[in-house]
């Protein structure tokens, strides 16, 4: 790392903020949608999933970036996978040890982080060609971008589908049920997650015109 560049230079901060908006892995690159549909029924698992992905992307980017000059080009994919898999197993074990109930809810989807396209994409596109610190920041940024969408989607799905936020009966407290309101079962089903992501993409594109493709 060059000593002249400060740790949080404008360029490095851009690595962090880019994936949150103009280069979001879910809404712009449309990666990792599968898990976004699966784990967003409630807020709590979604947040845990988001943190797990942030940790895995950040550290796998870091490790691969450190190794980038020694990895033979022909076997780089398998090396990347080994790093990711090791980190995912670590995360999985930690989740099982400390938040067992959430880990039960997430079931296979923690393990499936290994196959999450965002990870491979970042390793191939960024970590293989950049310095460790930048790669680490980029990993956190992309994890955050993914996590932000997860949290937004699961917030609406839990609020409208189950009437709760973080397991807390929020609709019941407002007394809407007595007025005839009932929970929307559609929000529990995966299609609604897809529709919410679609609406987020719609809003984002109508605000940021440069994202719209020329047809």
């Amino acid at each position: 790392m060059s000593n002249k560049e400060p740790l949080f230079s404008a360029k490095n901060l851009k690595l962090l903020s880019g994936p949150l908006n103009l280069n979001n892995p879910v809404t712009v690159q449309v990666l990792g949608v599968c898990s976004a549909l699966a784990v967003t029924v409630q807020l709590k698992p979604a947040v845990v999933m988001a943190i797990s992905v942030i940790v895995v992307t950040a550290f796998s980017n870091l490790v691969i970036s450190l190794l980038r000059n020694t990895i033979p080009n022909r076997i780089r994919i398998i090396v990347q996978l080994v790093v990711i898999a090791a980190l995912v197993i670590l995360v999985d074990q930690i989740l099982k040890a400390f938040v067992y109930d959430v880990s039960k809810q997430l079931s296979v989807f923690v393990g499936l982080i290994i196959t999450n396209c965002i990870l491979m994409g970042r390793l191939e596109a960024f970590a293989m060609a950049n310095k460790p610190w930048q790669s680490f920041v980029d990993g956190i940024g992309n994890g955050l971008g993914y996590g932000a969408i997860l949290v937004i989607v699961s917030f609406f799905r839990e609020l409208l589908g189950s009437g709760t936020i973080w397991g807390y009966q929020i609709i019941e407290k407002t007394g809407l049920y007595d007025l005839g309101y009932s929970n929307n079962g559609m929000f529990i089903l995966p299609p609604m997650a897809l529709i919410i992501i679609g609406v987020i993409i719609w809003i984002q594109r109508s605000r940021k015109r440069e994202l719209i493709e020329k047809s």
């Binding site: 009932s182 929307n184 079962g185 559609m186 929000f187 089903l189």
Partner: peptide
């Protein structure tokens, strides 16, 4: 939508 959202 009604069928899946509010089956009752």
């Amino acid at each position: 939508f009604l069928f899946f959202a509010y089956p009752a």
